[in-house]
Simulated assay, not measured.
Amino acid sequence: MRLRQLFLEKIINFYGPFVGAGVRLQKMTKDYRHARVSMKLTFYNKNYMGTQFGGSLYAMVDPWYMLMLIKNLGRDYIVWDKAATINFRKPGRGTVYADFNLTDAHLEEIQATLATQNKMDYIFKVEIKDKDGKLIADVDKVLYIRRKST
């Protein structure tokens, strides 16, 4: 199991959209409950104004909660990214970071809801910050989750 995680951690940094955007997975905990992602400002993710391109900022937060939920909920659930809203707060002028935390409370709420209904949408909040902790953008990630039919 740990070998699969190491493979995921290494190979995901070579995923085409991440390479093009400069996105790097810095850390993923063994239990898939926490991930830290960074993105340096480079010539290929810089916009006309010389700051982080908005599409790259979104790309850095795209798949993480889906992957974390798949690993933590198990094979009895289907998880898909459904929608997102990104609010740009300040131009990103250097390396930016995003942290993803999946708590017991998140999992308990999802499992309790799906015990009484077939499907649900769940919203995770993600903040993208610079090296000084200043908010660059915040994102609402909507995930579609349902139990598999038995």
Rank of each mutant, 00 (worst) to 15 (best):
R2S: 15
Q5S: 14
L6W: 13
F7L: 09
L8F: 08
E9D: 11
I11S: 14
I11K: 05
G16C: 07
V19Y: 01
V19L: 15
V23P: 01
R24Y: 12
R24L: 08
T29P: 01
D31Y: 06
R33I: 01
H34L: 15
H34K: 15
M39R: 01
T42W: 02
T42L: 07
Y44D: 07
K46P: 00
N47P: 05
Y48R: 12
G54V: 14
G55P: 10
L57K: 03
Y58M: 12
A59W: 00
A59K: 00
M60C: 05
P63F: 01
P63E: 08
M68P: 05
M68E: 10
I70D: 04
I70G: 03
K71N: 13
N72M: 04
R75K: 12
R75Y: 03
R75M: 09
Y77E: 14
W80Q: 07
K82L: 03
A84C: 11
I86G: 08
F88Q: 07
R89A: 10
P91Y: 07
G92H: 01
R93T: 06
R93E: 14
G94Q: 05
T95Q: 13
Y97P: 00
A98N: 04
D99K: 03
L102G: 01
L102S: 02
T103K: 03
T103I: 03
D104W: 01
A105S: 08
E109Q: 06
E109D: 12
E109P: 00
A112T: 14
T113Y: 02
A115R: 11
T116A: 09
T116K: 13
N118P: 03
K119Y: 01
K119V: 01
D121Y: 06
Y122H: 06
V126A: 10
E127V: 00
I128T: 02
K131C: 08
G133H: 12
I136D: 00
A137I: 05
D138H: 03
V139L: 09
D140L: 11
V142S: 11
L143M: 13
I145Y: 02
R146M: 07
R146T: 12
R147V: 03
K148Y: 10
K148R: 15
S149W: 09
S149I: 15
